[in-house]
């Protein structure tokens, strides 16, 4: 064995590595892989009550692709995801940059911005619902009294989707800001000084100098936020709109939950779960391939 190989060798034997990995592998197997395989299996059965299973092959998958409700959910989810990720990252970047540029009270600003993320999603949904409620909300009242805008998202489907996106963006800003301020803080002062000497303005510095340098963090955030938007809109939708009005906020996760636990169509819901998993996995792969091309990993 060469010196180089022995330097990389952390354990004396493979058994040590296996032993240390074993608890994690067991947990992942029990709580992730086994349920996933069970879900795949369930998707091939019609289950009206648990324990009564009838083999239906790929019927659920065929039903899914012929279902208007499912197609609507897919479109709603894509709109929700694109809007949430784009708006959230854009504002996170701007706000992180502002925090980065300040010289006084930086921590105060940072805490203020991160605060909403400390709220559980359910609490955030209730708070925002209260603020923008068409009948009671102070924000909707001000919009109506000053600009004459009626933001009645209990009857207007588009407004309802905007309300849910607003809630998701507001609640999720803090997470991205934590990473972005950390990444911006790692940029050497010399880079900033050089940009200033070259006469680059603040926005130019942000988008032409800083963004390329923190692109690995941005890729990471895009991937995580996309996964979060696909799988995590449930609480907001459940508490704010219940998927309505007329299914305009019925994201895939909510639709899946309704089919499984309200409509007692467990097999059909399992098929939705499998399709959602595949969809997100493919999306992640494509996203990573594309963003990798533009991310700068040369070291900050």
């Amino acid at each position: 064995m060469s010196d180089h190989a022995s330097r990389l060798q952390v354990f004396d034997s493979n058994w040590q590595a296996v032993l240390l990995l074993f608890p994690t592998l067991v947990l992942i197997s029990v709580f992730l892989y086994y349920p996933f395989l069970e879900t795949v299996q369930l998707s091939f059965y019609r289950i009206r009550v648990l324990g009564n299973e009838q083999w239906v092959g790929f019927d659920h998958y065929l039903d899914l692709f012929g279902s208007d409700t499912y197609r609507n959910s897919l479109v709603v989810t894509v709109i929700f995801t694109v809007a949430t990720v784009t708006v959230s990252l854009f504002f996170s970047l701007l706000l992180s940059f502002l925090v980065h540029e300040t010289r006084r009270f930086t921590n105060v600003y940072l805490i203020g911005l991160i605060w909403p993320y400390a709220l559980p999603l359910a609490v955030a949904a209730v708070v925002l619902d209260f603020l923008i409620n068409p009948q009671l909300g102070i924000v909707t009242f001000l919009l109506n009294s000053t600009l004459g805008i009626e933001f009645n998202w209990t009857t207007d489907g588009t407004a309802a989707l905007v309300a849910v996106i607003l809630a998701a963006v507001w609640q999720g800003l803090g997470y991205s800001i934590i990473f972005m301020t950390a990444a911006l803080g790692q940029i050497p002062e010399s880079v900033t000084d050089a940009a200033r000497l070259d006469g680059v303005g603040p926005l130019g510095r942000l988008f032409r100098v800083y963004v390329p340098l923190i692109s690995p963090i941005l890729v990471f955030l895009i991937v995580l936020q996309t996964i979060g938007a696909f799988f995590g809109g449930f609480a907001l939708v459940d508490l704010m709109t219940g998927g309505g009005p007329d299914e305009s906020t019925n994201v895939l996760m909510f639709n899946l939950y309704q089919d499984a636990f309200t409509n007692s169509r467990f097999g059909y819901a399992a098929a939705q779960s499998v399709v959602l998993f595949v969809f997100v996995a493919v999306l992640m792969y494509v996203q990573l391939k594309i963003t990798d091309r533009y991310a700068y990993y040369g070291g900050v």
Binding site: V49, W55, V56
Partner: peptide, 8 residues
């Protein structure tokens, strides 16, 4: 072929 896995 339909296969039933019944509650019973």
């Amino acid at each position: 072929m339909k296969v039933n896995r019944s509650r019973r």
